[in-house]
Design a protein around this nucleic acid. Structure first.
Lengths: 181, 181
DNA sequence: AACTCATCTGACCGATCGGTCAGCGTCTGA
DNA sequence: TCAGACGCTGACCGATCGGTCAGATGAGTT
Protein backbone atom coordinates (compact mmCIF):
# COMPACT_ATOMS: atom_id res chain seq x y z
CA UNK A 1 0.00 0.00 0.00
CA UNK A 2 2.93 2.30 0.77
CA UNK A 3 3.46 4.87 -2.00
CA UNK A 4 6.30 7.30 -2.68
CA UNK A 5 6.52 10.13 -0.14
CA UNK A 6 5.61 12.96 -2.40
CA UNK A 7 2.52 11.28 -3.82
CA UNK A 8 0.28 11.02 -0.78
CA UNK A 9 1.82 14.18 0.65
CA UNK A 10 0.78 16.21 -2.37
CA UNK A 11 -2.61 14.52 -2.66
CA UNK A 12 -3.33 15.62 0.89
CA UNK A 13 -2.35 19.22 0.06
CA UNK A 14 -4.60 19.24 -3.01
CA UNK A 15 -7.56 17.68 -1.24
CA UNK A 16 -7.15 19.98 1.76
CA UNK A 17 -7.05 23.05 -0.47
CA UNK A 18 -10.24 21.99 -2.20
CA UNK A 19 -12.11 21.12 0.98
CA UNK A 20 -10.95 24.23 2.86
CA UNK A 21 -12.07 26.44 -0.03
CA UNK A 22 -15.58 24.96 0.10
CA UNK A 23 -16.24 24.50 3.81
CA UNK A 24 -13.60 26.76 5.35
CA UNK A 25 -10.73 25.91 7.70
CA UNK A 26 -12.72 25.33 10.86
CA UNK A 27 -15.52 23.69 8.91
CA UNK A 28 -13.25 21.03 7.45
CA UNK A 29 -12.13 18.14 9.66
CA UNK A 30 -8.99 16.07 9.19
CA UNK A 31 -11.37 13.15 8.68
CA UNK A 32 -12.96 14.99 5.72
CA UNK A 33 -9.55 15.48 4.12
CA UNK A 34 -8.53 11.88 4.75
CA UNK A 35 -11.77 10.64 3.20
CA UNK A 36 -11.20 12.80 0.09
CA UNK A 37 -7.67 11.44 -0.31
CA UNK A 38 -8.66 7.88 0.46
CA UNK A 39 -6.37 7.39 3.44
CA UNK A 40 -6.73 7.44 7.21
CA UNK A 41 -6.78 10.52 9.39
CA UNK A 42 -3.59 9.25 11.02
CA UNK A 43 -1.87 9.38 7.63
CA UNK A 44 -2.74 13.05 7.25
CA UNK A 45 -1.14 13.65 10.65
CA UNK A 46 1.86 11.55 9.64
CA UNK A 47 2.61 13.93 6.76
CA UNK A 48 1.73 17.16 8.59
CA UNK A 49 2.45 17.82 12.25
CA UNK A 50 -1.04 19.17 12.85
CA UNK A 51 -3.96 20.90 11.14
CA UNK A 52 -2.39 24.34 11.48
CA UNK A 53 0.83 23.17 9.79
CA UNK A 54 -1.28 21.96 6.86
CA UNK A 55 -2.88 25.38 6.56
CA UNK A 56 0.55 27.00 6.81
CA UNK A 57 1.87 24.98 3.89
CA UNK A 58 -1.15 25.92 1.78
CA UNK A 59 -0.89 29.61 2.58
CA UNK A 60 2.89 29.97 2.30
CA UNK A 61 3.07 31.05 -1.38
CA UNK A 62 0.30 33.63 -0.94
CA UNK A 63 1.93 35.01 2.18
CA UNK A 64 5.28 35.32 0.45
CA UNK A 65 3.73 37.37 -2.34
CA UNK A 66 1.84 39.48 0.18
CA UNK A 67 5.05 40.23 2.06
CA UNK A 68 6.77 41.17 -1.19
CA UNK A 69 3.94 43.61 -1.93
CA UNK A 70 4.30 45.05 1.55
CA UNK A 71 8.02 45.58 0.95
CA UNK A 72 7.39 47.32 -2.37
CA UNK A 73 4.85 49.53 -0.60
CA UNK A 74 7.31 50.68 2.04
CA UNK A 75 8.99 53.37 -0.05
CA UNK A 76 5.83 54.84 -1.60
CA UNK A 77 3.48 57.61 -0.56
CA UNK A 78 0.31 59.29 -1.85
CA UNK A 79 -0.85 58.48 -5.36
CA UNK A 80 2.16 56.25 -6.04
CA UNK A 81 1.30 54.10 -3.01
CA UNK A 82 -2.31 53.89 -4.19
CA UNK A 83 -1.24 52.62 -7.58
CA UNK A 84 1.21 50.04 -6.23
CA UNK A 85 -1.36 48.81 -3.72
CA UNK A 86 -4.12 48.62 -6.32
CA UNK A 87 -2.21 46.68 -8.94
CA UNK A 88 -0.35 44.56 -6.42
CA UNK A 89 -3.37 43.58 -4.38
CA UNK A 90 -5.69 42.93 -7.31
CA UNK A 91 -3.01 40.74 -8.85
CA UNK A 92 -2.48 38.86 -5.60
CA UNK A 93 -6.19 38.43 -4.95
CA UNK A 94 -6.88 37.10 -8.44
CA UNK A 95 -3.93 34.74 -8.33
CA UNK A 96 -4.62 33.36 -4.87
CA UNK A 97 -8.41 33.26 -5.04
CA UNK A 98 -8.50 29.74 -3.65
CA UNK A 99 -6.36 30.65 -0.64
CA UNK A 100 -8.56 33.65 0.09
CA UNK A 101 -11.68 31.51 -0.18
CA UNK A 102 -10.41 29.08 2.41
CA UNK A 103 -9.85 31.89 4.88
CA UNK A 104 -13.31 33.30 4.41
CA UNK A 105 -14.64 34.54 7.71
CA UNK A 106 -11.87 32.93 9.70
CA UNK A 107 -9.54 35.85 9.23
CA UNK A 108 -10.32 37.40 12.63
CA UNK A 109 -9.64 34.11 14.44
CA UNK A 110 -6.55 33.20 12.47
CA UNK A 111 -4.96 36.61 12.88
CA UNK A 112 -4.92 36.00 16.62
CA UNK A 113 -2.50 33.11 16.14
CA UNK A 114 1.13 34.27 16.41
CA UNK A 115 2.03 32.58 13.11
CA UNK A 116 -0.27 34.97 11.22
CA UNK A 117 0.02 38.01 13.46
CA UNK A 118 2.10 40.09 11.06
CA UNK A 119 -0.54 39.66 8.35
CA UNK A 120 -2.77 42.01 10.30
CA UNK A 121 -0.11 44.72 10.22
CA UNK A 122 0.40 44.22 6.50
CA UNK A 123 -3.30 44.53 5.79
CA UNK A 124 -3.42 47.69 7.87
CA UNK A 125 -0.58 49.13 5.77
CA UNK A 126 -2.53 48.10 2.67
CA UNK A 127 -5.60 50.00 3.85
CA UNK A 128 -3.28 52.89 4.54
CA UNK A 129 -1.93 52.79 1.00
CA UNK A 130 -5.40 52.51 -0.57
CA UNK A 131 -6.35 55.57 1.45
CA UNK A 132 -3.32 57.42 0.06
CA UNK A 133 -2.00 57.60 3.64
CA UNK A 134 -4.82 59.94 4.54
CA UNK A 135 -6.23 59.58 8.04
CA UNK A 136 -9.62 61.02 7.10
CA UNK A 137 -12.30 58.45 7.99
CA UNK A 138 -13.94 58.86 4.56
CA UNK A 139 -10.75 57.78 2.83
CA UNK A 140 -10.10 54.91 5.22
CA UNK A 141 -13.66 53.60 4.94
CA UNK A 142 -13.45 53.66 1.15
CA UNK A 143 -10.13 51.83 1.36
CA UNK A 144 -11.56 49.08 3.54
CA UNK A 145 -14.64 48.68 1.33
CA UNK A 146 -12.34 48.16 -1.62
CA UNK A 147 -9.95 45.80 0.13
CA UNK A 148 -12.64 43.60 1.67
CA UNK A 149 -14.79 43.76 -1.46
CA UNK A 150 -11.99 42.52 -3.70
CA UNK A 151 -11.15 39.66 -1.38
CA UNK A 152 -14.73 38.49 -1.08
CA UNK A 153 -15.42 38.89 -4.78
CA UNK A 154 -12.35 36.87 -5.75
CA UNK A 155 -13.38 34.10 -3.39
CA UNK A 156 -16.82 34.12 -5.01
CA UNK A 157 -15.73 34.14 -8.65
CA UNK A 158 -13.50 31.06 -8.48
CA UNK A 159 -14.21 29.86 -12.00
CA UNK A 160 -14.07 33.06 -14.04
CA UNK A 161 -10.88 33.49 -16.17
CA UNK A 162 -8.14 35.64 -14.62
CA UNK A 163 -8.00 38.11 -17.50
CA UNK A 164 -11.69 38.83 -17.16
CA UNK A 165 -11.64 39.29 -13.40
CA UNK A 166 -8.48 41.39 -13.12
CA UNK A 167 -9.40 44.36 -15.36
CA UNK A 168 -12.90 44.50 -13.88
CA UNK A 169 -11.46 44.73 -10.38
CA UNK A 170 -8.90 47.34 -11.42
CA UNK A 171 -11.67 49.44 -12.93
CA UNK A 172 -13.86 49.40 -9.85
CA UNK A 173 -10.92 50.08 -7.51
CA UNK A 174 -9.78 53.11 -9.50
CA UNK A 175 -13.27 54.56 -9.39
CA UNK A 176 -13.90 53.72 -5.74
CA UNK A 177 -10.71 54.83 -4.04
CA UNK A 178 -10.62 58.42 -2.84
CA UNK A 179 -8.27 60.48 -5.03
CA UNK A 180 -5.37 61.91 -3.04
CA UNK A 181 -5.71 65.58 -2.20
CA UNK B 1 -33.12 32.41 42.11
CA UNK B 2 -36.00 32.32 39.65
CA UNK B 3 -36.43 35.71 37.95
CA UNK B 4 -39.21 37.13 35.80
CA UNK B 5 -39.43 35.51 32.36
CA UNK B 6 -38.40 38.47 30.29
CA UNK B 7 -35.35 39.25 32.39
CA UNK B 8 -33.21 36.17 31.83
CA UNK B 9 -34.67 35.74 28.37
CA UNK B 10 -33.51 39.19 27.32
CA UNK B 11 -30.16 38.87 29.06
CA UNK B 12 -29.49 35.75 27.03
CA UNK B 13 -30.34 37.59 23.81
CA UNK B 14 -28.04 40.48 24.68
CA UNK B 15 -25.16 38.26 25.75
CA UNK B 16 -25.56 36.03 22.70
CA UNK B 17 -25.54 39.04 20.38
CA UNK B 18 -22.35 40.32 21.95
CA UNK B 19 -20.56 36.97 21.94
CA UNK B 20 -21.69 36.08 18.39
CA UNK B 21 -20.42 39.43 17.11
CA UNK B 22 -16.98 38.79 18.56
CA UNK B 23 -16.40 35.09 18.00
CA UNK B 24 -18.99 34.30 15.33
CA UNK B 25 -21.92 31.90 15.42
CA UNK B 26 -20.02 28.64 15.13
CA UNK B 27 -17.23 30.00 17.32
CA UNK B 28 -19.57 30.70 20.24
CA UNK B 29 -20.79 27.81 22.37
CA UNK B 30 -23.98 27.76 24.41
CA UNK B 31 -21.69 27.37 27.41
CA UNK B 32 -19.99 30.69 26.51
CA UNK B 33 -23.35 32.45 26.40
CA UNK B 34 -24.49 30.87 29.67
CA UNK B 35 -21.26 31.94 31.36
CA UNK B 36 -21.71 35.53 30.14
CA UNK B 37 -25.26 35.63 31.49
CA UNK B 38 -24.41 33.87 34.72
CA UNK B 39 -26.76 30.93 34.30
CA UNK B 40 -26.47 27.32 33.21
CA UNK B 41 -26.38 26.09 29.63
CA UNK B 42 -29.64 24.26 30.34
CA UNK B 43 -31.30 27.60 31.13
CA UNK B 44 -30.29 28.96 27.72
CA UNK B 45 -31.95 25.92 26.16
CA UNK B 46 -34.99 26.38 28.38
CA UNK B 47 -35.61 29.83 26.90
CA UNK B 48 -34.66 28.94 23.31
CA UNK B 49 -35.43 25.62 21.64
CA UNK B 50 -31.90 25.35 20.23
CA UNK B 51 -28.92 27.37 19.13
CA UNK B 52 -30.40 28.05 15.70
CA UNK B 53 -33.59 29.44 17.22
CA UNK B 54 -31.47 31.86 19.24
CA UNK B 55 -29.78 33.05 16.07
CA UNK B 56 -33.16 33.35 14.36
CA UNK B 57 -34.49 35.64 17.10
CA UNK B 58 -31.39 37.85 16.84
CA UNK B 59 -31.56 38.11 13.07
CA UNK B 60 -35.31 38.58 12.71
CA UNK B 61 -35.38 42.42 12.69
CA UNK B 62 -32.54 42.66 10.17
CA UNK B 63 -34.19 40.09 7.92
CA UNK B 64 -37.51 41.94 8.05
CA UNK B 65 -35.82 45.15 6.91
CA UNK B 66 -33.93 43.27 4.20
CA UNK B 67 -37.16 41.77 2.90
CA UNK B 68 -38.78 45.20 2.88
CA UNK B 69 -35.87 46.54 0.81
CA UNK B 70 -36.27 43.61 -1.57
CA UNK B 71 -39.95 44.43 -1.99
CA UNK B 72 -39.19 48.09 -2.71
CA UNK B 73 -36.64 46.95 -5.27
CA UNK B 74 -39.11 44.82 -7.20
CA UNK B 75 -40.68 47.65 -9.18
CA UNK B 76 -37.45 49.46 -10.08
CA UNK B 77 -35.03 49.19 -13.00
CA UNK B 78 -31.78 50.83 -14.15
CA UNK B 79 -30.57 53.93 -12.35
CA UNK B 80 -33.62 54.02 -10.09
CA UNK B 81 -32.90 50.48 -8.88
CA UNK B 82 -29.28 51.46 -8.26
CA UNK B 83 -30.32 54.36 -6.10
CA UNK B 84 -32.86 52.41 -4.07
CA UNK B 85 -30.37 49.58 -3.55
CA UNK B 86 -27.57 51.95 -2.56
CA UNK B 87 -29.48 53.96 0.00
CA UNK B 88 -31.44 50.99 1.27
CA UNK B 89 -28.51 48.66 1.70
CA UNK B 90 -26.15 51.23 3.21
CA UNK B 91 -28.85 52.15 5.69
CA UNK B 92 -29.50 48.53 6.55
CA UNK B 93 -25.82 47.67 6.86
CA UNK B 94 -25.09 50.62 9.14
CA UNK B 95 -28.11 49.92 11.31
CA UNK B 96 -27.54 46.20 11.67
CA UNK B 97 -23.75 46.23 11.88
CA UNK B 98 -23.79 43.90 14.86
CA UNK B 99 -25.96 41.33 13.10
CA UNK B 100 -23.69 41.42 10.06
CA UNK B 101 -20.64 41.00 12.25
CA UNK B 102 -22.04 37.87 13.83
CA UNK B 103 -22.60 36.30 10.43
CA UNK B 104 -19.08 37.04 9.29
CA UNK B 105 -17.78 34.16 7.22
CA UNK B 106 -20.64 31.90 8.13
CA UNK B 107 -22.87 33.24 5.39
CA UNK B 108 -22.10 30.39 2.97
CA UNK B 109 -22.93 27.77 5.60
CA UNK B 110 -26.02 29.48 6.94
CA UNK B 111 -27.49 30.10 3.52
CA UNK B 112 -27.62 26.35 3.04
CA UNK B 113 -30.12 26.05 5.88
CA UNK B 114 -33.71 26.22 4.60
CA UNK B 115 -34.59 28.93 7.12
CA UNK B 116 -32.19 31.36 5.44
CA UNK B 117 -32.42 30.08 1.88
CA UNK B 118 -34.41 33.03 0.52
CA UNK B 119 -31.71 35.43 1.76
CA UNK B 120 -29.46 34.17 -0.99
CA UNK B 121 -32.04 35.08 -3.64
CA UNK B 122 -32.49 38.51 -2.10
CA UNK B 123 -28.75 39.20 -2.13
CA UNK B 124 -28.59 38.09 -5.75
CA UNK B 125 -31.33 40.58 -6.59
CA UNK B 126 -29.36 43.22 -4.67
CA UNK B 127 -26.25 42.56 -6.75
CA UNK B 128 -28.52 42.79 -9.79
CA UNK B 129 -29.79 46.18 -8.69
CA UNK B 130 -26.31 47.50 -7.90
CA UNK B 131 -25.30 46.41 -11.39
CA UNK B 132 -28.23 48.36 -12.83
CA UNK B 133 -29.64 45.02 -14.05
CA UNK B 134 -26.78 44.76 -16.50
CA UNK B 135 -25.45 41.28 -17.13
CA UNK B 136 -22.00 42.50 -18.17
CA UNK B 137 -19.41 40.82 -15.90
CA UNK B 138 -17.69 44.16 -15.28
CA UNK B 139 -20.86 45.61 -13.81
CA UNK B 140 -21.65 42.51 -11.76
CA UNK B 141 -18.12 42.31 -10.35
CA UNK B 142 -18.26 45.96 -9.32
CA UNK B 143 -21.62 45.33 -7.69
CA UNK B 144 -20.32 42.41 -5.66
CA UNK B 145 -17.22 44.32 -4.58
CA UNK B 146 -19.47 47.08 -3.29
CA UNK B 147 -21.96 44.79 -1.57
CA UNK B 148 -19.36 42.62 0.15
CA UNK B 149 -17.16 45.60 0.95
CA UNK B 150 -19.94 47.46 2.70
CA UNK B 151 -20.91 44.44 4.77
CA UNK B 152 -17.37 43.72 5.88
CA UNK B 153 -16.60 47.37 6.58
CA UNK B 154 -19.69 47.82 8.72
CA UNK B 155 -18.79 44.75 10.72
CA UNK B 156 -15.31 46.19 11.24
CA UNK B 157 -16.34 49.73 12.23
CA UNK B 158 -18.65 48.74 15.08
CA UNK B 159 -17.92 51.75 17.26
CA UNK B 160 -17.92 54.63 14.78
CA UNK B 161 -21.04 56.89 14.90
CA UNK B 162 -23.75 56.09 12.33
CA UNK B 163 -23.75 59.56 10.79
CA UNK B 164 -20.05 59.33 10.07
CA UNK B 165 -20.16 55.86 8.55
CA UNK B 166 -23.27 56.28 6.39
CA UNK B 167 -22.21 59.25 4.21
CA UNK B 168 -18.74 57.78 3.74
CA UNK B 169 -20.25 54.53 2.48
CA UNK B 170 -22.72 56.32 0.22
CA UNK B 171 -19.85 58.29 -1.29
CA UNK B 172 -17.73 55.26 -2.10
CA UNK B 173 -20.69 53.31 -3.49
CA UNK B 174 -21.69 56.13 -5.83
CA UNK B 175 -18.17 56.31 -7.19
CA UNK B 176 -17.64 52.55 -7.41
CA UNK B 177 -20.84 51.34 -9.03
CA UNK B 178 -20.85 51.20 -12.83
CA UNK B 179 -23.11 53.98 -14.24
CA UNK B 180 -26.01 52.55 -16.22
CA UNK B 181 -25.55 52.75 -19.98
C1' DA C 1 -51.61 23.31 53.88
C1' DA C 2 -51.78 21.49 49.40
C1' DC C 3 -51.40 22.12 44.67
C1' DT C 4 -49.84 24.31 40.27
C1' DC C 5 -46.69 26.08 37.37
C1' DA C 6 -42.83 28.67 35.52
C1' DT C 7 -37.90 28.87 36.18
C1' DC C 8 -33.71 26.86 36.66
C1' DT C 9 -30.08 23.28 37.28
C1' DG C 10 -26.60 19.21 37.49
C1' DA C 11 -25.84 15.12 35.51
C1' DC C 12 -25.77 12.90 31.60
C1' DC C 13 -25.92 11.58 26.40
C1' DG C 14 -23.98 10.57 21.69
C1' DA C 15 -21.28 12.73 18.27
C1' DT C 16 -17.27 14.83 16.70
C1' DC C 17 -13.12 17.22 17.14
C1' DG C 18 -7.64 17.29 16.88
C1' DG C 19 -4.15 14.47 18.18
C1' DT C 20 -1.25 10.14 20.02
C1' DC C 21 0.70 5.65 19.76
C1' DA C 22 2.05 0.88 19.16
C1' DG C 23 2.56 -1.86 15.59
C1' DC C 24 1.76 -3.49 10.75
C1' DG C 25 3.86 -4.47 5.99
C1' DT C 26 7.34 -3.22 2.51
C1' DC C 27 11.38 -1.56 0.56
C1' DT C 28 16.44 -0.89 0.69
C1' DG C 29 21.28 -0.81 1.64
C1' DA C 30 24.97 -3.00 4.16
C1' DT D 1 19.94 -12.08 4.87
C1' DC D 2 18.57 -9.02 7.98
C1' DA D 3 18.23 -4.50 10.46
C1' DG D 4 16.25 -0.32 10.11
C1' DA D 5 13.78 3.38 7.84
C1' DC D 6 9.48 4.56 5.73
C1' DG D 7 4.55 4.89 4.83
C1' DC D 8 0.56 3.87 6.87
C1' DT D 9 -3.25 2.35 10.03
C1' DG D 10 -6.84 1.10 13.79
C1' DA D 11 -7.67 1.87 18.27
C1' DC D 12 -7.76 5.00 21.48
C1' DC D 13 -7.53 9.59 24.22
C1' DG D 14 -9.37 13.87 26.49
C1' DA D 15 -11.95 17.83 25.32
C1' DT D 16 -15.85 20.03 23.66
C1' DC D 17 -19.99 20.37 21.17
C1' DG D 18 -25.46 20.77 21.08
C1' DG D 19 -29.04 18.82 23.35
C1' DT D 20 -32.10 15.93 26.97
C1' DC D 21 -34.17 15.01 31.32
C1' DA D 22 -35.64 14.30 36.01
C1' DG D 23 -35.95 16.88 39.68
C1' DA D 24 -35.13 21.07 42.95
C1' DT D 25 -36.87 25.70 44.11
C1' DG D 26 -39.96 29.21 45.00
C1' DA D 27 -43.92 32.27 44.19
C1' DG D 28 -48.98 32.49 43.57
C1' DT D 29 -53.71 30.36 44.02
C1' DT D 30 -57.17 27.79 46.19
Amino acid sequence: MARAVSETHDEILIAASRRFAVTGYKGTSLQDIARAVGCSKATVLYHFANKEALLGKLMAPAITVLEALDARLAGQTGAAAQQVATEGFVDLAVRFRREIALLRGEFPDLLQQPAFAHIQQISERLVDAFAGHSDRPVARIAALVVLAGIAETCAEFIDIPDDELRPALLAVVRRAVEPVS
